[in-house]
Design a protein around this nucleic acid. Structure first.
Lengths: 344, 344
DNA sequence: CTGTTAGCGCGTTCAC
DNA sequence: GTGAACGCGCTAACAG
């Protein structure tokens, strides 16, 4: 008999080959009931011989379980989300779940529509990095399927969220700069009004306040969480002529932009100006000089989010601890040695 | 009557609500046959009212079509693959296809297993970025489902591949450095034996040869396609004391590493040493100084790969042109002004 | 422990 | 143009 390894083999063909009933094969596959050693061997052999692979769609339909977990991100190309996705994938190894990732690219209109795409595909759980979706909508979604939100708050019987302590992070960075001797520290914000920016700024202000330094609005400039915002903001800052010796950018991308603007202005980092970011993107340690920043353990967060969803699905207890933020001091920050040299 | 928008509604419930048969609703949904204007309206209203979403699994089982395209990458967290994935997603907008992304994280063992995961999920097409998979295996897979391979060659009735001209890219970079006046150009390789490295090196040699410069093996050092390789390689190069005024790194990540090692050695880029890369990662233009590199239009490649798979699935003609490589000259390369200053 | 019987929700014949 | 009947490949509930 010729074996056609590339043909789609059905479960009942395996059963026929093994001389058992389809249910036995199914039971073997799902482990839903004990199968005698003898039959097990025959079935295994038949599966091997025919190179059988279960049809996931049929399985999902019959069992009501898709074994897939939906993941919603805004931008799959950012290494920030990439790390998170990696963590999620890692957390799913060994489980039978597979992630189904949908990013804003698929449906620019709105995240709710993306969620619907995922839900239509019968995802059993959801991990979301919301931008538009608010707490209320998340709770609503969580009524249909277990959900973990990263960033925006959500809670309920089937809803959890992970939020880092942005304020503490902002405080840590600013405190670090103050400890180095900086007194004029600029803050390059992210998207104005963004809750994370607000929190990070609050930490910045808090550290200034504690050190007896007063908050100077002229050193607080908006950005957009991208390099371009860091560049423009820093250029504007330099143009104003307001003296400063350090820049705390609200995220790493902004910090890279700030660093580039300083470079173009002929200012050295960290000799002339110190620069610090927030996130610790994978390449933050490889730029020159390596960036001082707050490590947001995004890989680990992805892992925990994945584990949490699986736990909910299994009815196991969920404990979604937030991994702590950490200040990573690298070469981009130093004492303000050439104090205000540029501004004289 | 109370509407429960969050309950799973079935097609036949919609039919009942609309007072038509399930088939009519189905026909409306799939567009497989004409439906009278009157019924269409009623059905639309019922769908709207009940907030009905078709069950993708059931649909896949009945029609034999999953409307999903499998994507296999090695490392979802790299911004290089991220861009490609973004392109793929973009290309699928407006089609009813959704990508299902699986990366090496899911199954470190081997790519073939990942492909099986995808195939078991009934993906209708496949886009792969192979690392282990060879041409022969790809052709084999392509017998089961239309396939586009990015990097490794594959061809056949259902198999296409996109390969950039690595040699031309290597030539362009080297030529650029030579034109600037460089004579001692180091080559920091990627993973030894990797076909892309070999091709890029060939271009490098070709350019040297054309310029009447002889290839110096002591300037050709291995790397690993990561920043670490660039760092170590460059450090070793500096330790050897062999003079050079420029570094051509086989990819951007290696270039960043090289740049960092130079930074640590107190060498300035580009004043002392020029650095060029290959890939044009999204952040290559935001490092300081911005990196001269070869733009690999990875986003566009992702788009074309996606379009090609869809075209195959629709029986439309596929034309998978390779977008051209482009030399992007930025601030990391310059004339060797301070010629060999360091080496005196 | 095993085989038999029913569906899962939908698309798709086939008649009307 | 429309409805009724059947089946996609598998799991689950039922007997034995």
């Amino acid at each position: 008999m010729t074996i056609k390894p590339d043909m789609k083999i059905r479960l009942d063909e395996v059963a026929a080959e093994a001389g058992v009933s389809p249910s036995t094969v199914s039971r073997f596959l799902t482990g839903s009931a004990r199968v005698s050693e003898a039959k097990r061997k025959v079935v295994e052999a038949a599966i091997e011989k025919l190179n059988y692979r279960p049809n996931t769609a049929a399985r999902a339909l019959a069992s009501g379980r898709s074994m897939t977990i939906g993941v919603l991100t805004l931008d799959i190309s950012s290494s920030f989300y990439g790390e998170a996705l990696k963590g999620i994938e890692q957390s799913l190894i060994g489980t039978d779940f597979v992630p189904m990732i949908v990013s804003g690219e698929l449906n620019t209109k709105d995240e709710a529509a993306c969620v619907e795409v995922l839900l239509a595909r019968q995802v059993e759980g959801l991990i979301v990095f919301p931008r538009q979706l608010g707490t209320r909508q998340l709770q609503q979604i969580a009524k249909r399927v277990p959900l973990v939100s990263i960033g925006v708050k959500a809670s309920g019987p089937q809803a959890y969220s992970m939020q880092i302590d942005n304020e503490a992070g902002g405080y840590m960075v600013t405190r670090h700069l103050i400890d180095l001797g900086h007194r004029r520290i600029a803050f390059v914000g992210g998207t104005p009004g963004h809750p994370e920016v607000i929190a990070r700024r609050a930490g910045y202000k808090q550290a200034l306040h504690e050190a007896g330094l007063k908050y100077d609005p002229s050193l607080d400039i908006p950005g957009n969480f991208h390099e371009s915002g860091g560049i423009e903001g820093t250029e504007r800052l330099l143009a104003k002529g307001t003296p400063f010796t350090a820049v705390f950018a609200s995220n790493d991308q902004s910090a890279f932009g700030a660093r580039l603007a300083l470079h173009h202005a002929g200012l050295r980092v960290p000799e002339d100006i110190s620069v610090a970011g927030f996130d610790d993107l994978p390449h933050a340690c490889f730029v020159s000089p390596p960036l001082t920043t707050i490590r947001q353990p995004i890989l680990e967060m992805g892992r925990r989010a994945g584990r949490a969803v699986v736990a909910m699905l299994r009815g196991e207890p969920v404990n979604l601890e937030i991994p702590p933020l950490e200040l990573i001091v690298r070469g981009s920050t130093a004492q303000p040695a050439a104090l205000l040299r540029h501004w004289r």
